[in-house]
C-alpha cells in the first residue's frame, strides 16, 4: 500500500542530497549517546551485544541443549522440569534464559511457540528470532490456525497428533524439545546437535532428518 506523505518525500530528498544516515539511525544514535553520557549503558556492552547476536549466538546453543537431552535422560528430566537451571548447568545461561520452559514433542503431541504480544523469544540460546516469528501474520495465525501455519512450513500433521500452542512472554519463554530422529543411535552430542534446526525448537519443523543438511 502506498500513500503520499510530504514529510517522507522531504526526508527522501534530504537523504539524496546529503550523507545523513537514515532517520531511525539518527534517532538511535541520539538515544545511545545520551544514555552513555548518563552512564545508563556501556557502549562496549552494546557493541559486544551486537557482535554476539549477529555472529556468535545462533540456534547452535539450543541445538546442543536438545542433543544433550536426547543422550542423557537425567538431563532431559531436568530440562523439562526447570529449563533455566538445566541450561545454566551447561554454562549457557544468558539473556532471556532465566525463565525458560522446554516443551516436549511426542508421537502424539506437537508443540508450537509464538509470542502473541510482540516477539518474546529465548534469544540467549536460540539467537535472534526469525523475521516471520515477529510478523503479525504469525502471531495471529499460530493461535487461530496452527495446522495451517505448520503446513506452510512443510509440516503436514496427522489429525491424530494434538497441537499445543505456547504463548511466550517476557517472563516465560518456551522452546520445543523435538523428537530424536530414528537411525541416529550411534551419534554423539555434536553430531546430534547438527541435526537440530532452529524451526524445530520453535515448532514450525517436526521430523528432523537423521543426516545433517
Amino acid at each position: 500500500m502506498s500513500s503520499f506523505d510530504p514529510n517522507k518525500i522531504a526526508d527522501i530528498h534530504r537523504h539524496l542530497h546529503s550523507h545523513l544516515p537514515p532517520e531511525p539511525a539518527l534517532r538511535v544514535k541520539a538515544i545511545e549517546s545520551l544514555l552513555v553520557e548518563k552512564g545508563l549503558v556501556d557502549p562496549q556492552a552494546v557493541d559486544a551485544w551486537i557482535e554476539a547476536y549477529t555472529e556468535d549466538i545462533g540456534p547452535k546453543r539450543g541445538a546442543r541443549v536438545v542433543a544433550r537431552a536426547w543422550l542423557d535422560p537425567a538431563f532431559k528430566a531436568q530440562l523439562l522440569d526447570d529449563a533455566g537451571a538445566a541450561v545454566a548447568e551447561m554454562g549457557l545461561q544468558g539473556q532471556a534464559t532465566g525463565h525458560l520452559k522446554a516443551v516436549e514433542n511426542t508421537p502424539t503431541t506437537h508443540n508450537l511457540v509464538v509470542c502473541t504480544l510482540c516477539s518474546c523469544y529465548p534469544f540467549g540460546i536460540l539467537g535472534m528470532a526469525p523475521a516471520w516469528y515477529k510478523a503479525a501474520e504469525y502471531r495471529a495465525r499460530a493461535v487461530r490456525d496452527p495446522r495451517g501455519v505448520l503446513r506452510e512450513f512443510g509440516v503436514d500433521l496427522d489429525e491424530s497428533i494434538a497441537v499445543r500452542v505456547w504463548d511466550s512472554t517476557a517472563e516465560l519463554r518456551y522452546m520445543v524439545l523435538p523428537q530424536r530422529p530414528a537411525g541416529t543411535e550411534g551419534l554423539d552430542e555434536d553430531a546430534l546437535a547438527a541435526l537440530v534446526t532452529r524451526n524445530a525448537m520453535i515448532g514450525t519443523d517436526r521430523d528432523l532428518s537423521p543426516e545433517a543438511a
Binding site: 537514515p22 539467537g127 516471520w132
Partner: peptide, 28 residues
C-alpha cells in the same frame, strides 16, 4: 501462499540501526 515460510531466510537485521536499537533495549 506462503507469507511466513517465504520470510524464513530473511536476515534478522537489515540495517545496523536495527541491531543497535534492540541492543540498547536489552542492555537497559
Amino acid at each position: 501462499l506462503h507469507p511466513l515460510a517465504s520470510r524464513d531466510g530473511d536476515p534478522v537485521f537489515a540495517e545496523a540501526w536495527q541491531a543497535q536499537g534492540l541492543a540498547l533495549a536489552d542492555c537497559l
